[in-house]
Nucleic acid binder design. Structure first.
Lengths: 202, 202, 202, 202
DNA sequence: TATGAATGAGGCTTCATTCAT
DNA sequence: TATGAATGAAGCCTCATTCAT
């Protein structure tokens, strides 16, 4: 029987609120209420609202980076590179408050925190691109030129953004059909460039 | 010598503030100050903050829909369908407060206004998809199957989302390279499906 | 086909609002809205809120005084003095916005208007007492002493206040039963003092 | 040396203001000022203006009910039933802010609070009537019929209302003469009905 | 007579934060 | 670690009133 540390419960409540209402419309009073403590008690764990926000952001980002890495690592060589992670995104979106928080508050962070948020986001995207490139290299078995790898890396990031937008805007179902469409075109292009005949299927 | 009506000046200031700080962090006091009137005077023109927000949103959306339509209408038949509009997006983003407002506040609208915002956004996307499909049909000269048109319509929306995200997140330069990458793949696919040889260029 | 002058329509709307919400909670904006004109137009008819209030108050008071006078004048000599007016109060209360206004805003007038309101109210009560005394003299056919007439005049005002309070607080039905109880006792006393035997009825 | 808790000082200031100006014309800013704290500090003790109002109302009502009960309990059996409480009302009115608040804000409570206010008021009246009836039974030594007791209960409430109205409207002196007049008639009636000869005095 | 626009004052309420306990 | 109380700043909005048209 372990009790969850207060700081963690605060972070969890914060994720929920920031994700639902954004930074400005989330009030420390309501977060405290959700945790079941008084407003002033928050300051025993976090120095200010920004601190709380940045900690949950960093946590969520790190978690996402870890999951992404795992997805890429576990992906079969023959699979369309990066497809596991996209599937994972869609699958997790409705279950994971943390993921929703990450995607929703990436847009329009409080101006004061923008630099750190952006830096974190870029690191995440860089990792994705790197993982994808590595995977793509293996998938292409040397038949893809560096320029192709770079091109498709960019395309892959666009695909991820697009899926994320669809998740945030609408829902998992529509994100799924968008993913399929984009992956179809991505795959067609890759097969063509990697010298496969047009008859080769996924 | 015409003077700009106060209501329009308010709307303009509102677009600036909402675009820069978001709905919650934009205060009517500062908007009034930017216009050069007193806070209470706003209420001679708008019934409340939400009303002001929705009006500038509707205006921005309508303007964007009009510009999109114009782009598609003026696009050469041989051009990659929808490329004019994407170019227009990137070109206008840094100049047009209204466009920035539209893209930035599409994400995380105030919960109370979410339904109307979403409805507007969906209409915009539907128009884009319709215009693209029509253009694509003409471009393909009957060699594209309906399923292809549908597939690439979805892909085109993904491309637009992706470019918009890149604009909002980072800047026009990165949005431009992403656009090029995605258009490259889009074009490759279209050429292949429409039976053009690989030598055929846009 | 005659049109009702705007000033009268304003007064009518004002009576409704003041009666329902009191002076402070009644806003000129909503009164204007009820009339179907703009707020500023009110000032073409009344110089300020207090002026409007005092005019409808004076009107209501005058109307009530007139009705009271009529009630007393038309009352059969044998009737319990003042009973007609009390019956009239109860009967009119639910139909007459003006009466409700008078009774409700008599209590707690805006401090600035208190002197005038009080003066008006006292004049109304004085008239009631005078009319009652005259009627009572006739009813008693000289068998009541001046001290009795004075005593019962006070009692009658108490009865009226009490009925009015019951109307304002609760409803006509309860005001009716209170009236009956008080009149019973009033009558018993009068009969006794005027030397009637206990068999004499109203 | 005990310090008065802030919440109580707020309540006291609120009673003063509500009693003097009514609900709408009383501002939290001025109440806070009277207490010597900042406006925002009020919210450490009361959740909103209505909450503050209802709390002081409940307190005042409870106090009044207690005092009424005490008056009836301490009243000599031979005294005119309920006369002690009426005397107490008149005596306290000018000294007790709480009593003035209760009587003044019973009329025209803020519409949103009307139900609770009314319920409280009715409970108070019911208690009065009950206490009076019990006292009257003892006073009559079995010579009063139940119908008489009921009749005079209603009359007593009318008497109380009438005295309260006179207190609120005018002053203690006039309330006193009204009380005397009404009590005279009440007593006359009771003596007659309880079979006392006309020579029996109070 | 009517009104659109403007305004100073002020309404209630919430905010993040501090501090003594 | 937790909290009750306090607070300055700021939030949105409504008020009665004025004035030029």
């Amino acid at each position: 029987m372990t009790t969850i540390p207060t700081a963690e419960r605060i972070a969890a409540a914060a994720v929920t609120h920031f994700s639902s209402y954004g930074y400005d419309a989330s009030s420390l009073a309501r977060i405290a209420e959700a945790v079941g403590i008084r407003k002033a008690s928050l300051y025993s764990h976090f120095s200010c609202k920004d601190d709380l926000f940045m900690r949950v952001f960093a946590e969520a980002l790190q978690a996402e980076c870890g999951l992404a890495r795992d997805c890429f690592a576990a992906e079969p060589l023959a699979a369309l590179p990066g497809s596991s992670y996209c599937a994972s995104l869609i699958e997790r979106f409705e279950k994971s408050e943390q993921l929703r928080f990450l995607l929703r508050t990436g847009y329009m962070p409080p101006p004061a925190l923008e630099p750190q948020i952006s830096a974190g986001h870029e690191a995440y995207l860089a990792q994705l691109q790197g993982d994808f490139a590595e995977r793509l290299g293996a998938w292409g078995r040397g038949r893809l030129m560096p320029a192709d790898i770079e091109l498709y890396g960019e395309v892959y990031l666009g695909l991820v953004d697009s899926v994320q937008v669809k998740l945030v805007y609408t829902d998992a179902r529509q994100a799924q059909s968008r993913l399929q469409a984009l992956q179809q075109v991505l795959q067609d292009g890759l097969l063509q460039r990697s010298g496969h005949g047009s008859a080769v299927h996924e």
